[in-house]
């Protein structure tokens, strides 16, 4: 089973855990050199942040890519401002899951609800957000389902619009829910529960 596959990959990875700031932080190092870092809320066990880092072909460390949670707001380097970046008035895309569904929020979209259309493209395994006034367009995958190789279903998708924010929700399938519970159980077994600095073996 494909879901099993992903569990095995997770199990084989080197994990380092620490509890800090009311969050359980886990760092995974996979055998192919990829790194994943997750943060869970200690009380609600909700996933707050999940980010990835890949090595480039030439062997350089890439930037952290945020999959779930707020985009990184690091200090602005002078070299960054030299080139090009999105204006702050542009729509901001981020994923923030709930217990039962994957959820994406796009802020800064001051258009009425009937402008938007959200659909699933099963052949491309992605969700497409379109606007009839041609201001915003986004094509994105549900990475969790891709990893478990589960099919996409149009009926699981819904969206609302309020306060200049478009919220797209996709109900998590059964397989994902069981996987997440299992993973969480596994993570709670990891030691490193003490506050403060923990040796990070993976670095």
């Amino acid at each position: 089973m494909a879901v099993q596959n992903w569990i095995d990959v997770l199990k084989s990875s080197k994990k380092t855990a620490l509890i800090h700031d009311g969050k359980r932080k886990i760092h995974y190092l996979f055998t192919d050199g990829k790194e994943m870092s997750e943060e869970y809320d200690l009380k609600t066990d909700e996933l707050i942040v999940r980010k990835w880092r890949h090595k480039s072909t030439l062997g350089a460390h890439g930037q952290w890519e945020v999959e779930v949670g707020e985009p990184l707001a690091g200090p602005v380097n002078s070299s960054d401002s030299e080139v090009i970046k999105e204006n702050c008035s542009n729509p901001v895309f981020m994923r923030k899951d709930t217990k039962t569904s994957f959820q994406w929020r796009i802020r800064n979209l001051p258009y009425p609800k009937d402008v938007f259309s959200v659909s699933v493209e099963p052949s491309d395994r992605c969700i497409i957000i379109k606007t009839s006034n041609k201001k915003y367009y986004k094509k994105f995958n549900i990475t969790d389902l891709d990893r478990s190789q589960l099919p996409l279903d149009n009926s699981a998708l819904s969206f609302t619009h309020a306060n200049n924010t478009l919220i797209v929700s996709y109900k998590k399938p059964k397989e994902t829910l069981t996987l997440e519970q299992e993973l969480l159980k596994e993570l709670k077994k990891l030691k490193g529960s003490g506050e403060g600095d923990v040796d990070c073996k993976t670095q």
């Binding site: 960054d80 401002s81 030299e82 080139v83 090009i84 970046k85 999105e86 204006n87 702050c88 008035s89 542009n90 379109k130 606007t131 041609k134 201001k135 915003y136 367009y137 986004k138």
Partner: peptide, 10 residues
């Protein structure tokens, strides 16, 4: 054809 974005330039 589908979208528009404003960028800040360095």
């Amino acid at each position: 054809t589908e979208m528009e974005t404003i960028y800040d330039l360095g």
